[in-house]
Design a binder for these strands. Sequence first.
DNA 1: GAGTGGTCTAGACCACAAG
DNA 2: TTGTGGTCTAGACCACTCT
Lengths: 242, 242
Amino acid sequence: MDKKYLNIYNEILNKIENNYFKPNSKLPSENDLMREYNVSRATIRNALNLLEQNGYIQKIKGKGSFVLDIHKFNFPVSGLISFKELSKKIGLNANTILKELSVIKPDSYLMKQLQISGDEHVWKVIRVREIDNKKIILDKDYFNKKFVPLLTKDICEDSIYEYLESKLGLKISFAKKEITVQIATEDDKKYLDLEGYNMVVVVKSYIYLDDASLFQYSESRHRPDKFKFVDFARRNKEVMKG
Amino acid sequence: MDKKYLNIYNEILNKIENNYFKPNSKLPSENDLMREYNVSRATIRNALNLLEQNGYIQKIKGKGSFVLDIHKFNFPVSGLISFKELSKKIGLNANTILKELSVIKPDSYLMKQLQISGDEHVWKVIRVREIDNKKIILDKDYFNKKFVPLLTKDICEDSIYEYLESKLGLKISFAKKEITVQIATEDDKKYLDLEGYNMVVVVKSYIYLDDASLFQYSESRHRPDKFKFVDFARRNKEVMKG
DNA sequence: GAGTGGTCTAGACCACAAG
DNA sequence: TTGTGGTCTAGACCACTCT
């Protein structure tokens, strides 16, 4: 990767994670960093803005950039991160069981969710996620076959996202997610170890590629006591004008 | 407000919301916008990047900037938005009932949440939110008294945030939120119309000022069938390197 | 080849914070 | 007064898309 600002971003991020830059301490000023990395100020600002957006630092006009202390508590379920990335990050004893893998014609609900016609085909993937030997999450994923020509058992049991990004070269860009709580369905009771709970947390995701085409709809159904969603949000500038 | 890029941001946003720039259509190129507004390209890019961050457009290298079609479905509970701002935005018949307003010494739990010592004082505010005449949300807010010297009944029944931002000049900068589902407590049953549900959705928020000081901790407890959280997330660049 | 957004430079002036 | 980050300019070259 040749991009200077990304290299600088990663270098500073490493120093934060390795406690070289400590929480609540001040980073070198933008002018110092310019000299240290021999780049223009805009490049430094590009790197620092990315750090700020991702919640690692807070910039304060007239004072400097300060390292935030909140990431050590975070399970970043927020943002876009796959189950495999997540389980690796938090080091859980996790396991995936593939229950169904097929190509279907979408019903009217799915046509609406994926914004396609009934003539197109859709991959349907049903997986159960086991954590510490308990069936906690039921994932129902639907992929527009136009973008994903092939899926196999092996891919679904490993990481679909890794396959899509590395092998197919699809670039996942953004997602809309919706979290609600619902009464557990028969499917939920059949596939999950609900241990008496009669509700599930449902995370619906609409996932888009970098050309803004909708290629996946998914429902992730969680046992309520095991569900946790963490979000880092900045107050928007334009909201403050209202 | 003198900032050129914010003016341009708002002008383009208005044109998107008024359907002058239609969903899936292309915005004028950055060069066109430079000429139209008589500013440098960096200023245009500043405005467009803000639109992209907030999910209104998608930029595609070599092609252009395209208007996204997802905002019309959004209840933006995500981000940082107060109950009053929200109810105004979605036009609900909403009402706030103040149950408790007092200054307390924090117990050990609260000391940890607000990262303060037992010598400091904390405002405790308990409010019930009524929507369509049903008690749906129980809000428990705790403010570090160092930053909020005074609260009154009137302020709590109107909008605390408006008071903090407009009158006290506090600048709310970012928040960490955590969503879980819990068994309903006696308080939940006492204050809310739970209609048989025995669980509540709990949103814990840690809210920071622009100097990165933690000034508020709050728990928002929702009847599960009425809860909905919508999130717009972009896949991070540095994650893609991993 | 022409047009697009992505990165980068080398300046400038401003508002804000702190001694 | 000095140093900080925030905004802005006027260029430049690049990688990518489309025709």
